[in-house]
């Protein structure tokens, strides 16, 4: 059994986190297509939360950077 398969078949918070990280590498050899459906909805929620955080903080960062350069 490979490391990837042992991760894919184990459960628990860290295993799920690891599965999600592996998910971000689309061609890593895991059978992503066969996960139970709730995984995909959960991953979608994770990604949207991260997008929201990046956007909220990034917007302020971009504004601040622009004012530092002197043009806004």
């Amino acid at each position: 059994m490979t490391i990837q398969h042992s991760i894919a078949t184990s459960t628990g918070f860290f295993a799920e986190l690891m599965k999600w990280l592996l998910w971000l590498l689309p061609f890593n050899g895991l059978s992503h297509y066969a996960y139970p459906l709730w995984h995909y909805w959960l991953y979608a929620a994770y990604s949207l939360v991260i997008a929201g955080v990046v956007y909220a903080f990034g917007y302020r960062w971009a504004r601040r950077r622009a004012s530092e350069v002197g043009v806004s």
Partner: peptide, 25 residues
């Protein structure tokens, strides 16, 4: 939906960088 959310995550990073270009005319 999962693919779309991955795209949104990517877009948020690109959007922030691009916004900087829009502000810095």
């Amino acid at each position: 939906v999962c693919l779309w959310s991955l795209l949104v995550m990517l877009q948020s990073g690109r959007g922030v960088l691009q916004m900087k270009y829009l502000f810095v005319r």
